[in-house]
Structures are given as structure tokens and as C-alpha cells.
Design a protein around this nucleic acid. Structure first.
Length: 271
DNA sequence: AGAGGTACCTGGCAGC
DNA sequence: TGCTGCCAGGTACCTC
């Protein structure tokens, strides 16, 4: 579910309740996530002070005096800040309760999410070490995309979905950015020129920033830390709009399956 | 090395 | 109402 804008929205939402506060209690109701939750996680976290809440790609990093909690929301995960006495609902797997009486509650129906622990630098962790650049950082631009795509035959949509190429872009924003840049999602990554990659990098930046501004996209499960949905759905130009009019030229938006996931595009605006 | 498919899991929805 | 099949925002891992 959550792509970079949703994870960033979550980070901003939970950070005030966590940063500088102490974890007083950890409740784990379900350990079977994408990987099993470490058996000693509760003991590791209890009594620790949270120093910072940061993000790398779609991973949230909760840094404590002792080490770092690496958290991923998978397809259906969300984090809420709630009063400690709120009864848990279905799929409310983990609570981190703080000394001020509120809890961070992890909810994840499909259990593709993850909660891991590391003492090393987060950037040295095997899951994070090989990730590509952050798309909102200065080092990410059209030149970079152009260079790493030379000789690559993958369709550009899949190329953008690969976190080792660029971090944090999922199916929604890949489709949206390709529309904005006028690039057909099926085009081979190696057959796109430098100029078009400049436009694409700009479209990615613009799309992600606008989505964060709107609090992310809620199709189904996604909720912000305070329970509100994100409102970027209303600004989607192609994703989920098959058969509707292209906002630029009015042609019907098309969808097709590619690599087991849907892709959306305007057959006239995207080449 | 790169490309493509599979697996993990639950819920919602369309169609019958 | 209830069943079946399909679809969903992610990504590590396997095979070719």
C-alpha cells in the first residue's frame, strides 16, 4: 500500500508523539509478519528513549538509545497514535506505549509489513544497504536515471518500481509520474533519452511532493497517524481511472496487466 | 547481470 | 445470501 508519500506522511504524524519520549510497555499480539518479530523486541525497547523518527525509502526508522527499530508498512500497514487504553481491534498487531499515556499502534491486515531491530547504522542493514537514492534528494536527477538505464530492457514502469534504482516509488506514483512526463509505461528504460529523463525526474519530484502535501493517497486501508485518510486520490490523473478521460487530451485512459500488476496510461499523451 | 515469475496474507468486490 | 475468482499500495527470493 503505502509508498513514499504515505510513509513520509506517517512519519510526520507519529514523530511528535515519539521523539524524546520513553517506551514504557510493548504489546505484541502477532509475531508473524513478513519476517517474525524478534522474540526479545519487547525487552529491547522497554525503558528506551526515542531519539528520532526518520525514513529511508519506505522504511521507518525509530532510533532509540539502544538501537533502531526498522519498520515497514508492507501493502496494508498503518500506524496510529492512540490513547493507551484503546481496546485493540482485528489486525492490531503491535503497540508501543509511551510514558505520556499514548501508544503507537501497528495495524496490518495482510501482514506484509515488518518490524526488525538493528544495532548497526541503519544504512548498513542488508535491507537498506542496496537501496537506490531518495527521489527527493538532490543527488537524484535525470542524469542519474539516464546513466543507470543504459542497456536496460525492462519496461520503465518496472524500472521505477525497483527500489535499487530509486527508493520509495510504488505502482501509483510510477504510473502518475510517467503520465506527467509523457512517457509510455511499457517503453524499455534503455530506450529513453536524456531529455525525457530530465522531465521524468522532475515529474517524480513534483508528484511525490504534491502527494505528501495532500497527506498521501488512500485507496482503501491507508490512514494517517490521527486516523484521517490522505487526499491525493482526488489528484490522480491515470491510476485507477481506466476508461475515464485523460485530464490533458480527453482520450480514454487505458489499463493493462504487466508483470502481474496494473498499469495505467493515456495512449495519446504517452509515447 | 538482468529479467521474469512466485511467494507471503487478508479483505473487498464483481459476477453468478 | 453465499460462493468463486480476481484484484490490491511491496519486495525478497528463486530460476532461467
Amino acid at each position: 500500500m503505502p509508498e513514499l508519500p504515505e510513509v513520509e506522511t506517517t512519519r510526520r504524524g507519529i514523530r511528535p508523539a515519539l521523539r524524546g519520549h520513553t517506551i514504557t510497555r510493548v504489546t505484541i499480539r502477532q509475531r508473524q509478519l513478513r519476517w517474525p518479530v524478534p522474540g526479545n523486541l519487547a525487552a529491547l525497547l522497554t525503558g528506551q528513549q526515542i531519539l528520532e523518527v526518520s525514513r529511508r525509502a519506505k522504511y521507518l526508522l525509530i532510533e532509540t538509545t539502544n538501537g533502531k527499530l526498522i519498520l515497514h508498512l508492507g501493502m496494508s500497514g498503518s500506524l496510529r497514535v492512540i490513547p493507551a487504553d484503546t481496546p485493540p481491534g482485528k489486525h492490531d498487531h503491535i503497540d508501543l506505549c509511551l510514558e505520556h499515556g499514548q501508544c503507537l499502534r501497528f495495524h496490518d491486515p495482510r501482514r506484509f509489513g515488518a518490524m526488525l531491530w538493528t544495532r548497526e547504522e541503519a544504512s548498513d542493514h542488508p535491507l537498506l544497504r542496496t537501496l537506490g537514492p531518495e527521489p527527493l534528494d538532490k543527488g537524484f536527477n535525470g542524469n542519474y536515471l539516464y546513466q543507470v538505464s543504459r542497456g536496460r530492457k525492462r519496461r520503465i514502469r518496472d524500472f521505477l518500481l525497483d527500489g535499487h534504482v530509486v527508493a520509495g516509488i510504488g505502482n501509483i506514483y510510477a504510473n502518475e509520474a510517467l503520465f506527467t512526463a509523457g512517457i509510455h509505461p511499457m517503453r524499455a528504460a534503455g530506450r529513453i533519452g536524456r531529455e525525457r529523463y530530465h522531465r521524468l525526474a522532475e515529474a517524480i519530484d513534483q508528484t511525490l511532493r504534491a502527494a505528501i502535501q495532500a497527506g498521501g493517497t488512500s485507496l482503501k486501508d491507508f490512514r494517517r497517524a490521527d486516523g484521517r485518510p490522505g487526499y491525493f486520490r482526488q489528484q490522480l490523473k491515470v491510476y485507477g481511472r481506466a476508461g475515464k478521460a485523460c485530464p490533458r487530451c480527453g482520450t480514454n485512459i487505458r489499463t493493462q496487466q504487466a508483470g502481474n500488476r496494473s498499469l495505467f496510461y493515456c495512449p495519446r499523451c504517452q509515447k
